[in-house]
Amino acid sequence: MRNLIFGLTLTAIFALGAALSFLWTPYDVTVLDIANKLKTPTADHWFGTDHFGRDIFSMIMVGARTSIAVAIVAVVIGMGLGVPLGLTAAARKGSLLDEVIMRGNDLIFAFPSLLIAILITAIFGPSAINAIIAIGIFNIPVFARLTRGAALSLWTRDYVLAARVAGKGAVRISAEHILPNLANLLIVQGTIQFSLGILAEAALSYVGLGAQPPTPSWGRMLADAQTLIALAPHVALFPGFAILFTVLGLNMAGDGIRDVLDPKLRVER
């Protein structure tokens, strides 16, 4: 329970900060103020300023938007494709379709999202969309495997047999009896993939495969800070903490949700 409250609070802080940034930020992140560059934290600039004199606090608020948006859309892609694939594979267990879906999953697992991002970027050039697609594609097999595994054990339950005796087909059974009993598992895994998505987005932006300037993003801020790290380490400190605490908050919320819903759930990390 403590996990859940702490995790949700942390997550809520960042989500609210991201939402607020649409309406208001302490400073405009598009305005450069070279005179005030690389300031350490003061009452005016809570987290200091970067090498262009931009307010780091404001940039973290706006950067949260990118991180959260990329990670959420990637989870939606992963769930939206992975769950139906997993349900289909389980409903047609042992068929050619099942085999093809599972082999496809194995194949995607051989392409870490970074490699997918590299391939896409090589063709289309870098953008935040690339990051979403790359992370989203990698999420598909995670959800597909999890869904298939759990659905297979549900398919052996007597209540599924009873539904078949009542003449219900595979689609209807999957929707009525399988999916609702997977919901807990999917919610918990969803939070974990969300947090992994934030980490992956940061890494991709850091190496220049994600969101492009001037869109602020936490990974991009760290890349910029790196060249100045000996001079102004605080510029690297705050975006890093932003990532750390968002991911920590989501993970703890995920653990908390699992403990509340069903302590025996098994999820993949």
Binding site: R157, D158, Y159, L161, A162, H177, N181
Partner: peptide
């Protein structure tokens, strides 16, 4: 069926 626990969608 046999299993009174697994026969119903919870």
């Amino acid at each position: 069926f046999q299993d009174p626990y697994g026969s119903f969608n919870p």
